[in-house]
Amino acid sequence: MPMRHVDPMASAPLEGGECVARIPGEAGIWVLILGEMSVFGLLFATFLFYRSKAAAQFAASQALLDRNIGMANTLLLLTSSWFVAGAIQALRRDLTTIGRGCLAAAFACGAGFVSLKAIEYSEKFSAGITIAGDDFFMYYFVLTGIHLLHVLIGLGVLAFAAMISVRGVANTGRMRVIEGGAAFWHMVDLLWIVLFPLLYFLR
C-alpha cells in the first residue's frame, strides 16, 4: 500500500528537460529484482560454502570448463546491456526507430548467449559430464541453468518492450514498463558478471 499515491501507471515523471530524481521503472519491479538478487546471493554463498570444504576437487573440475565460451558470453551480455541502455535513452527522446533497433540488437546478443550456452552444455554432455557428475558440476549446471532461465525470461521481456515501444512512448506509463524491463535485463547481466568469475576463475 505505501506507494498507492505514486500511481506509477498514471504519472508522467519526466517533463521536457526537467530533471526529477526517481528510480527507473515502477517501484514494484524492484521487489522482484531485489528478491531475485537475494536468492542468487544465497545460491552463491551456498556454492562458496561447499567449495571451501572440497577446494581441490572443485578446482580440478573447474579446469574442465571452457573459459573462452564463458568470456564470449560475458562480452555478449555486457554489449546487450549497453544496447538496452541506449534503447532507453532513445525512447525517452521519442527516437522510436533507434530505440527499437537497440532493443533488437540487445535481443540478438542475448540469443547469442543462449546459443553459446547450448554449445557449452552439449560439449559437457558429450564429454560425459552431467549434473550428477560431482559437486562442482552440480553447482555449475544448477546455477548456470537458473541463470539461463532468467536470460530466456529476459529475452521475452525485451521482445515485449520492443512490442510496446510505439511512437510517443516517452513520459508515459509504457515508458516505465520498458524501464522496468531494462532494469530486469541489467540484473540478468549483473548476475552473470558475478557468476562467471565465481564458477570459471575463482581459485
Binding site: A27, G28, I29
Partner: peptide
C-alpha cells in the same frame, strides 16, 4: 498494489 504483482512473478 502493483508490487504484489511483481512479488507473485518473483
Amino acid at each position: 498494489p502493483r508490487w504484489a504483482g511483481y512479488l507473485n512473478l518473483w
